[in-house]
Design a protein around this nucleic acid. Structure first.
Lengths: 342, 342
DNA sequence: ACGAGGTGTCGAACCGGTTCGAGCAAGGAG
DNA sequence: CTCCTTGCTCGAACCGGTTCGACACCTCGT
């Protein structure tokens, strides 16, 4: 069931079969038909390893995502799904690799052993050894997120700075003066994850601009942490009337904490943040949020990567996305406050 | 940077380098050290395609999951994560393949082109051409779920029949007499997905056994459908006091529907079902549910698959899991009903 | 009639590993 | 001292494709 077998049965040479399949040289109509007939009879498909060895392309891209323990978020799920589908369109398979850093065994397998033609990196840090390493090697890679020096890179990223700022302005416009910020877990912030840092920056700067009183928190990626975090918020400043969250997984817990504290959303307390629409819609009241376009990001990342694989010398390209805030039902005017504009 | 280069610099033959790396023949301590030194200097790693071609093993397993459109559920996410991690333990990579049926291009790539040593199939149907096909080929595969004829197969499955029944008994014990069942989307039921069918069976039989009045519904995999479904339930029989759901993604919508209808959970209405604990805990009140052990299932599936790859002639093995119901806060005694036991 | 150019096919080399059979040297047994 | 192991190493073949150069044949122009 290899190419030699096909060649023998069709009465031609192996190279002719190869050319008939690839179309890289012309083959007479008659020969082509004969070959195709034998192939159909035997259900032959060329061996991927052999092909990869011969032409140096595996037709596989690696998707490098952080190891679990960090719980996966819904956004990551949507993202993975869209990457797989977009890759299929370009005739690429997707190899999953759980890896935080450069020196991971898993990362080494992908690169060193040439299992993939290119890679998509998730959960980027401001200083990311993986990104630097791949750039140095000129290995085709696209980052989901920007490092501190994104100038000539290949990436697609959410503009967390702008998004967090937009949330602040939305709340300030509604008259809120004391606002809390719920970030991703502390170890992620300390490790330098860019979304956590840029989100925090955007929040802090916009709040200063609007003269708001703020507190910022880190919160574990699960409901229990969310609830605990909300309790801390109200304990630290009971006059807080709104919060902005980057932490999708904590959302349910935040809502529960508010309910337990007797704060009605959105009458007594407003909640907003950056959350994929699918998840913003599962909570009640539905979350007013900047919808993370996970699917679009996956598709764009794959398109960029494929382009880079096929044109290795092309200059860096990137997409910085800042989806608008979708008004749903979780935010409202601050109680007992007149609108600044009013 | 290939094995020949290493051999040359170490002053030995290619085969000696290979043996030093694999340990399949003895190599003198001195030679080994010299080779290792050169390898470390050059950062050499053997090419995966060449190795796969030579020894017929790719060290990759395929994870075949249904194409999106069917939204992914949280359970699937946890599952994928645990599969990747368990595979890494055994030194396997995971290749993602979106595929519903046998004849998919994607499915053919995996098998025909020998990209993987084995496969894990998700979202099994009672009559599943993929499972039958792979069994016929004696291709190492493990199904997540059972077909109608699971006898000699390799699979790990949730006992949806028992789980749905346990939910019914739990509600009946609390005095509920009119109970609704919220299943996965109708097209999945019609396509013969086993979890939807067995769950429905278990629910129906147990309800009959306990003499309950029931209605069963199919519901889309998203919050809006959940809310609509709940409205239908209360419209069809306003006296309904409890529901059982297999549909994780609809959960938030069901809760919202209840809130909108003015039914307090668990005082006026009880909710239970089969949902991964992580998601059962995000809703308020937290869901009393049979916790889907997605992580354990992923791990067991990989263990089974690796065993099967390494012992191709071993007889079928499987795990049928029936986790207990975790009592949380979403169920309570039916209003105005005395306990049967009391 | 003859060379130029184009088409279709073939054999051989190559991609980068693994593995088998054989050979050589050193060490132990008889 | 010879014979047999045993330990170590090497060359060659092989896995299953792709690709290059060569060549045969046909057609066309002159």
């Amino acid at each position: 069931m290899n190419i030699g077998e096909i060649a023998k049965r069709a009465g031609v040479s192996r190279s002719t079969v190869s050319y008939a399949l690839s179309g890289k040289r012309s083959v007479s109509e008659e020969t082509r038909r004969k070959i195709q007939q034998v192939i159909d009879e035997l259900g032959y498909r060329p061996n991927a390893s052999a092909r990869a060895l011969a032409n140096g392309r595996t037709s596989t891209i690696g998707l490098v995502f952080p190891p679990a323990g960090n719980h996966y978020t819904g956004m990551q799920l949507d993202f993975i799904g869209s990457v797989v589908e977009a890759a299929a369109v370009h005739d690429y398979d997707v190899l999953l690799s759980p890896s935080g850093v450069d020196s991971d065994r898993s990362f080494q397998r992908l690169l060193g052993e040439r299992r993939v033609d290119g890679a998509i990196l998730m959960e980027i840090r401001l200083e990311d050894d993986r990104v630097d390493h791949l750039a140095e090697l000129e290995f085709p890679a696209v980052a989901i997120g920007r490092t501190a020096h994104p100038e000539n890179g290949w990436w697609v990223s959410l503009d967390h700075t702008a998004l967090a700022a937009a949330c602040v302005h939305h709340l300030a416009d509604l008259g809120h003066r004391r606002v809390a910020f719920v970030n991703r877990p502390e170890q992620l912030l300390r490790a330098g994850y860019e979304s956590a840092h840029r989100g925090l920056d955007g929040f802090t700067k916009a709040a200063a601009e609007r003269g708001l009183t703020v507190r910022t928190y880190c919160c574990g990626d699960d409901a229990a942490s969310g609830q605990a975090c909300l309790e801390r918020i109200l304990h630290d400043d009971p006059a807080t009337t709104a919060l902005v969250t980057l932490n999708e997984a904590a959302l349910g817990g935040l809502y529960r904490g508010l309910a337990k504290a007797g704060r009605h959303v959105p009458r007594d307390f407003s909640v907003t943040g950056v959350v994929a629409s699918r998840w913003a819609e599962t909570v009640t009241p539905q979350l007013t949020a900047a919808d993370v376009p996970a699917e679009e990001m996956g598709r764009r990342a794959v398109d960029l990567l494929v382009e880079r694989i096929e044109h290795p010398t092309a200059p860096g390209r990137h997409h910085l996305l800042a989806p608008p805030i979708s008004l749903r039902a979780s935010t409202g005017p601050a109680t007992g406050t007149s609108f600044p504009e009013a």
